[in-house]
Simulated assay, not measured.
Amino acid sequence: MSSLPRLTLYDTTKQFIPVYWTYCGIGLFAFIANLFIVFIYLSSAQLRSRFTLFIGLAIAEGINGAAFLMAAGFKRTIRIARLLMEDSFRTMYSYPRTLRSDCALQFENSLFVIGNQGPAMLSLALGIERFCAIRFPTTYRHFKEKMFHVLLILSAVICITSLCVALYIGLVIEKDLLASLPCTLSNAFGFTYTTFNYFFTAFGHTAGFILNFAAFWIIQNFKNIGRNSQVIAKEIEQIRLMNFVSICSVIMVVIPNMFLYVTRFNFFTLDYVILGWLNCAFVSRSAFSLHLLGFRSPRFRQRVSEVG
């Protein structure tokens, strides 16, 4: 019995075109949506003070949308379209090779690192903020403004440090290793760092989810026994909002990330096109911020009507 003919790069690569165009569309919407969120929150001094971490999260989500738009979407679509027009591509069975340092220098991979880890760290920061607001209300009221800025700066420092490590791996430690085109995150920064990226991103969102629900459980206990009614009235709306954000992050980011994390260890194989569609969950989460960080909040809706 004869074996099935081996597919050329032309046959396999053309299947990615719809995936990349989807990245373009959702990435563009995510970028514009989060830019709008930032504009609305910054347009009011009160909102700017109260929703500092939301502003930071929207910026990070916007960066993620831009990364999918410029790198995974538009840039790779154009590159693949050009390759598909070349006759030699119809007889090739493996992608051209380049140095890892060349891939690491492509700015879109740096955007992916910030776009992945930034929202994760800020989700954790929001969880810490909500937990402290409910568990230690008196102390929280005294240090609220300072806490917002400390958590925001700390999240940025962690993400930038992580990016520096990634660039050091790609440009110094493994700079001469060969990598296949296209320059994905794995080809730019290596297997170890990319695996860490999946785990680190999932950890941030999961920890934020746990802290938010711990705060929700505490405030429900206060409500049941009639304690701290003033705290409950002031914070219950924000707790519910953050719970919804956390749940969406777990569904749209943590679960796909852990799935990708498991696939790194070859427990099973999965078609690359399916993995491509799976990545749509990450940019879809950034696009969904328009509802999560924006219109789900009554204060945001009120400010939009005022600006409009």
Rank of each mutant, 00 (worst) to 15 (best):
Asp271Arg: 15
Tyr193Phe: 15
Ala45Leu: 07
Leu122Glu: 01
Leu278Cys: 13
Arg264Asn: 09
Phe268Gly: 12
Ile26Phe: 00
Leu163Gly: 04
Gly27Met: 11
Phe189Leu: 13
Phe36Arg: 13
Leu270Tyr: 13
Asn224Trp: 07
Asn228Gln: 11
Gly62Asp: 03
Ile210Asn: 06
Ala120Gln: 12
Phe265Arg: 10
Glu61Gly: 14
Arg97Cys: 01
His142Ile: 02
Asn279His: 10
Trp21Glu: 15
Arg135Cys: 08
Gly27Thr: 13
Met147Asp: 05
Ala207Asp: 02
Ile255Thr: 04
Met92Ser: 11
Val157Leu: 12
Asn257Phe: 09
Val150Thr: 15
Arg135Lys: 07
Ile247Trp: 02
Arg97His: 07
Ile63Gln: 03
Ile169Glu: 04
Gly190Met: 13
Arg296Gln: 10
Phe29Tyr: 12
Leu28Tyr: 05
Phe282Arg: 04
Lys144Asp: 06
Ser180Phe: 03
Asp87Thr: 14
Arg296Val: 03
Arg6Ala: 10
Tyr93Ile: 14
Ser249Phe: 09
Val38Lys: 14
Phe295Asp: 02
Glu145Gly: 11
Thr22Leu: 02
Ile37Ser: 04
Ile239Lys: 01
Ile160Asn: 01
Thr206Ile: 05
Arg264Gly: 03
Leu152His: 10
Leu278His: 06
Thr269Arg: 14
Ala71Val: 08
Leu293Asp: 05
Tyr198Met: 09
Asn221Lys: 15
Phe203Asn: 07
Thr22Pro: 06
Val113Met: 05
Met92His: 08
Phe209Ala: 10
Phe29Trp: 06
Met258Thr: 11
Lys144Phe: 00
Val283Ile: 11
Ile37Lys: 12
Val157Lys: 09
Ile134Glu: 00
Phe267Ala: 11
Met85Asp: 12
Leu47Glu: 04
Asn212Asp: 06
Asn187Asp: 04
Val19Ala: 05
Val19Arg: 06
Gln117Asn: 07
Glu237Trp: 00
Thr194Lys: 15
Val245Ala: 08
Met258Cys: 09
